[in-house]
C-alpha cells in the first residue's frame, strides 16, 4: 500500500511538473525540444508494449509512424480536410495495417520476426516514395498549419502521452500483461499454460501500432512537412525508438519517457556544442550507457530499489 501511494504521488508530481514547465520555459526553441521529447515518449511507450513487455522486438515501427503521419497528410492533400482529422484517422489506419502484419510476422520468432518487421518498414517507405500520384513521392507533403502557437502543441502532445501511458499501464497490469511477459520469457511454457500466443502478441501489436500512428499524425500537424524518407526512416525512427527505450528502461512504465527526454536533450546538446563530431560522441555515449546500465535508467533504479528492499527483509528476519 505504502509503495503504491509513493508511486501515485510521484505520478501526480510528474504531471504537475509537466503541466507547469511552459510557465518557466517559454522560448520557442526550448518548447520545440519538449514537444519532440513528447513525440518520442509516445512512440517509445508504444514500442515498449510490444518489444519490452511481449518481447517481440520490432525494427519496423517507422511503418506505423509513417502511416499515421501520411493519414493526416493525405487527408489534407486529397480531401482538403484539416490535418487534425488525421489525429483520429492516423491511429486507426496504423492499427488496421497492423492486423495483417501481425498475422504474417508472428509466424516468425525472435530475430526472424525483427528482420521481417525491418523489411516491412522499408517496404512502406519505398511504396510511399514511388506512388508519386497518390503520395507526392519524395516531394513530400507540406501543409499550412492553422495553429503556430507551440504552447498548444505542447499541451496537446502531453495529453496524448498521458493517454498512451495510461493505456499501456492498464494493459500491462492486467491478465494480458502477465500473458505478454510470459510469452516473452518462454513461448513454449506459455503455450503449455494454455496461452494462445499469437492472439496475445496481436493484442500487444494493435495498441502499439495505434499509439505510434497517433504520434505520427501529431508529428504531421506539428512539423507540417513530411516525406517518406523522414517518417518511414529506418535509422531515425525504427532504430531510434529502440535506443530510446533501451536507454530509459525496457519493460518499465516510465522508461521510454525518461529515455526520450535524455536522448533528445543530449542529441540536441551535442549538436549545438560539438559541431560535426556530435554523432560520434553521441554514439559512444549510447554505447557506454548500454554497457554500464544494461537495464536502462528506470530499470536500474527498479533493481536498486528491489535490492535494498530485500536487504531490509532479510534484516528483519525474512528470507
Amino acid at each position: 500500500m505504502n509503495m503504491l501511494n509513493k508511486k501515485f504521488l510521484l505520478t501526480i508530481a510528474f504531471i504537475i511538473l509537466a503541466v507547469l514547465i511552459p510557465v518557466v520555459i517559454k522560448a520557442p526553441y526550448q518548447l520545440h525540444i519538449l514537444i519532440l521529447i513528447i513525440i518520442w515518449a509516445i512512440i517509445g511507450t508504444s514500442w515498449n508494449l510490444l518489444g519490452g513487455y511481449a518481447g517481440q522486438v520490432s525494427f519496423g515501427h517507422a511503418a506505423f509512424f509513417g502511416l499515421g503521419a501520411y493519414s493526416a497528410g493525405l487527408l489534407t492533400l486529397h480531401c482538403a480536410l484539416s490535418p487534425w482529422w488525421g489525429i483520429l484517422l492516423g491511429p486507426l489506419v496504423a492499427a488496421l495495417a497492423a492486423l495483417p502484419i501481425g498475422m504474417i510476422c508472428f509466424r516468425l520468432r525472435g530475430p526472424y520476426f525483427a528482420l521481417a518487421m525491418l523489411a516491412l518498414g522499408e517496404i512502406f517507405r519505398l511504396v510511399f516514395l514511388n506512388l508519386t500520384d497518390f503520395t507526392n513521392g519524395a516531394k513530400g507533403i507540406l501543409i499550412m498549419p492553422a495553429i503556430t502557437n507551440k504552447m498548444f502543441y505542447y499541451y496537446t502532445g502531453l495529453g496524448m502521452l498521458a493517454l498512451t501511458l495510461l493505456a499501456t499501464y492498464l494493459i500491462v497490469n492486467s491478465k494480458i500483461g502477465y500473458y505478454l511477459v510470459s510469452i516473452r520469457e518462454d513461448q513454449d511454457a506459455a503455450t503449455s499454460l494454455g496461452i494462445p500466443t499469437t492472439l496475445y502478441k496481436n493484442l500487444a501489436l494493435l495498441p502499439s501500432a495505434f499509439f505510434t500512428g497517433l504520434a505520427g499524425a501529431f508529428y504531421m500537424n506539428y512539423v507540417a512537412f513530411i516525406d517518406p524518407n523522414i517518417v518511414f526512416n529506418l535509422t531515425n525512427v525504427s532504430v531510434m525508438v529502440i535506443l530510446v527505450v533501451m536507454l530509459g528502461g525496457v519493460a518499465t512504465t516510465w522508461g521510454p519517457t525518461i529515455g526520450a527526454a535524455i536522448y533528445i536533450f543530449l542529441g540536441e546538446y551535442f549538436r549545438t556544442t560539438l559541431g560535426s563530431a556530435n554523432v560520434l560522441i553521441f554514439g559512444i555515449l549510447v554505447c557506454l550507457i548500454i554497457m554500464f546500465l544494461p537495464n536502462g535508467i528506470a530499470g536500474e533504479l527498479d533493481l536498486l530499489k528491489r535490492l535494498t528492499q530485500r536487504k531490509k527483509a532479510s534484516l528483519s528476519g525474512g528470507v
Binding site: N173, S174, K175, Y178, Y179, V181, S182, E185, D186, D188, A189, A190, S192, L193, G194, I195
Partner: peptide, 29 residues
C-alpha cells in the same frame, strides 16, 4: 504438462509464474 528441461519464466517471480497459470481460469488479478 511440465517440461523435462524446465522452462521457468525466468524474469518473473515464483508467484507471477504460478499466476500466469492461474489466469487460464480467471481474469481477475
Amino acid at each position: 504438462r511440465t517440461f523435462q528441461v524446465v522452462k521457468p519464466l525466468r524474469r518473473m517471480t515464483v508467484i507471477e509464474n504460478v499466476m500466469a497459470g492461474a489466469f487460464l481460469r480467471t481474469g481477475s488479478i
